[in-house]
Design a protein around this nucleic acid. Structure first.
Lengths: 146, 146
DNA sequence: CAGGATCCGTTTCGATACTG
DNA sequence: CAGTATCGAAACGGATCCTG
């Protein structure tokens, strides 16, 4: 569908750093989903759904699908309950941690914001903060048998 | 506009860091506009327009208006040619430099990307890179009489 | 000519209802 | 619980027109 003018932007704008990534991250939900998986440890559709009550079921499903397609998250069966699906960050997704951190710090500096503890944690020792969440991620990777 | 259901998300999702900011940055163009103003020194409607040939005039105008409204950029008359308008980053906008930098580095690590020189510059000494672009910005501020 | 505003067809989003 | 189907609303993109 949609062959009105051939290329709808993505192809035209490639070659410059960021253009392709914005294609994925440049929407209202993706960054929030990644943030909550990274910083709050969310893993299931339900957790994400309840968090932002505003999101529609189909939108959440769609964003999760696209994030998977893009290699930022992966869906894997829950080790305890094989019927359940857990969404986990891939390494590529975890590598977004510095971006998210800088964004939270920016937001904290320029907007009213909640969760000052988290902000302080980031601001105090950014490198340590990043190392810590990465280490936690490594452990979950090991736990899930990867 | 858009008063279909009273509160369209922003109010419901406040309190958590990032929610409000994503409202502004979470779209396909805003981050690219900021990047080009910050990293490539773009200042005019025309420069931006020609850069991403894909963007429609009304969309660019709309994004510029919203970025101004949000305090990320400002419009001021060109000192040489009073008919022209220059768009410049505010301090709040410049403070996005670390975010942009991390994003570019992420994109460079995980996507094919152009402009490797820029990436190398960032990766080599991130702090110096950030200090440099901020210093350049300070100079333009001084030059425009602010 | 730069910097938009307006109109219009197309694409995407989002709320609700519904389903395995 | 974890989504899919549907359908109206909003955003987008392109072309054109307006204004200083």
């Amino acid at each position: 569908m949609s062959k009105t003018s051939g290329k709808s932007g993505s192809e035209r704008r490639s070659g410059c750093p960021l253009n392709a990534s914005v294609e994925m991250l440049g929407d209202r939900w993706s960054l929030l989903i990644i943030r909550d998986m990274m910083l709050r440890g969310f893993r299931s559709y339900k957790e994400l759904m309840e968090c932002y009550e505003g999101i529609a079921t189909n939108i959440l499903a769609d964003r999760l699908r696209k994030l998977i397609e893009y290699g930022i998250i992966a869906a894997e069966p829950d080790p305890q309950d094989r019927r359940k699906v857990n969404y986990v960050l891939t390494r590529k997704g975890m590598d977004l941690a510095p971006v998210l951190t800088e964004m939270v710090l920016w937001a904290a500096a320029h907007e009213e914001t909640g969760n000052q503890q988290l902000v302080e944690l980031m601001r105090g020792d950014k490198a340590k903060f990043l190392a810590d969440i990465r280490a936690r991620w490594e452990r979950t990777q090991a736990a899930s048998g990867k």
